[in-house]
Nucleic acid binder design. Sequence first.
DNA 1: TTGTAAGCGTTATCAC
DNA 2: GTGATAACGCTTACAA
Lengths: 330, 330
Amino acid sequence: MTTIIDVARLAGVSKTTVSRVINNYPHISPDKKEQVLKAMEQLGFTPNPSARRLRGQLATTIAVVVPKIVNPFFSYLVDAIEQVGYWKGYQTLICQTNEDKEKELSYLNLLKTKQADGIIMASIENDWEDIKPYTEYGPIVLCNEYINRADVPMIRVDQYQGTYIGVKHLIDRGHRKIAYCTGGLFTDFGKDRDRNMGYQKALAEAGIQVNPNWILVDKHTIEDGKQTMQQLLEMKDRPTAVFTGSDEIAGGLMLAAKKAGLSIPRDLAVIGFDDQPIAEVLDPGLTTIRQPIEQMGKKAGEVLLDILNQTGPGAAVYELPVELIIRQST
Amino acid sequence: MTTIIDVARLAGVSKTTVSRVINNYPHISPDKKEQVLKAMEQLGFTPNPSARRLRGQLATTIAVVVPKIVNPFFSYLVDAIEQVGYWKGYQTLICQTNEDKEKELSYLNLLKTKQADGIIMASIENDWEDIKPYTEYGPIVLCNEYINRADVPMIRVDQYQGTYIGVKHLIDRGHRKIAYCTGGLFTDFGKDRDRNMGYQKALAEAGIQVNPNWILVDKHTIEDGKQTMQQLLEMKDRPTAVFTGSDEIAGGLMLAAKKAGLSIPRDLAVIGFDDQPIAEVLDPGLTTIRQPIEQMGKKAGEVLLDILNQTGPGAAVYELPVELIIRQST
DNA sequence: TTGTAAGCGTTATCAC
DNA sequence: GTGATAACGCTTACAA
């Protein structure tokens, strides 16, 4: 490994001067500067980031926490963040929690040890109380998830609105027996709460009572969707429409429904969430709530970098719009 | 930031002793060890990886180079690698080239600067001659891509065989007009070459001539698939079957075909590559060549870690099997 | 068994 | 404008 000293020797200057060249210190005689540059070139020198970090200068790594990178929602998010980061000279560390609390905490430790200069959390497994202490070590930006009492920047979409317009759309199509199939739990905070409220609000406005049997929680994958359809098929009183928490669940659901001889949307209307590529190629095309994923990622990255460069506010909420994409499944 | 010295002070020992405790040096009196452990706990101490790296000890980061993380093939690959890495205490740096040569080289520099201890390349943009020099700085493992003259470990599947059985399957179904729609180019080396050879071999065996009009290159996305279908529709002499280089292209193709009133597989048979989740939910279900993506990623991770821990061979070729998954699109 | 001191590659301070 | 020199936090001879 070639170091600053090798360069100094070759250029016939002190290592201080080399360092100054590297960091674009203004007052250097042009000829020495050129010598140094030439020596660096010749030796193929690259400054050692560990040393720079240790010395307290460098900050070039951001971490993105996601539950599962294979979930297209998150891979698109990571994609957008990586692009912003690279553009500004940052590397992106991908942290997959697999919904494991411990793993999440271990990744938060990256902040403490300055292996990551900032973190974007696109999912949260632990309670905020357990995460908050880490904000001391570096900026944390919440993206997609949000905590009401958290004093950090948050990039979110209006989940309440998204769910509301989705369910309302089903009601407008004449449905009154509408199941709700969510990735989260039917809980009382954060994203889940907002989605639930949207569902309940839409039903309430139409004078429809929530049927607890039609609330299906903790569904994520295509496989989950297929199984959920089985559950629905076994019900004596079956819903005529299903609101799902992701396009993948919807895909599995449709697959199983068609296999069971149901016609979509005639026998069962299905609506997804996200507007992933899969939504378009499903047959019939999947009506869904589009989340501006790229925008979210881009914004999250920008906000984090602004904080790192001291040019942005420490906390703020950015809300991006959702949109109902009507295809043929409803 | 709390350092080893703080711990030493609190525990009433020298920093050397603390370091020994951290590194599980055997000969330490149990009581001192306990004091140190207690102090570390109390201060919430975590060793600074930059310092350890600088000192030349630590190796905990691997980098994975992919063209696009949003491509499910690569997100599954990264997923598998990350899991293996985490299990062994390594972090995974995700490097997205966007098929940009320069970006790829900049990521290879991670090796040189010891920001990454090893690299898994799941795609290659530059010529091997330009990449080879980096092997001097740390191990590079090729996964999915391969270079004949490269002296590094390679994890690959038999692309030749995969394409061959796919095309053969179409021939067995009675097709003789078979288009070939690939992600790469119809070039003469690596993965592309093998796939092309498989295609040509299967045709040759059946006494079928290659029709250059039906060779469609540089197709990747669902969108590409749709456009390709348009191209096909405009042909006077249209193929009756299409072999595609990925399930996504196949998906787009099917979508456009159905929209144009074609019935699949009656009017047009379609076969994909990868067996991604999308293959199952397409209608009709997509016949495809399954690549053992998770296995590939797992193997690549293991091979790299073995090298880093000096317990594995420096170069070897691991070939994993492909499998024809027959659904309803053929 | 424990401690002292040197050094990893860089940058900041202070002289000149 | 330039160069010694001391840190940054850690590991490891070498001594004790």
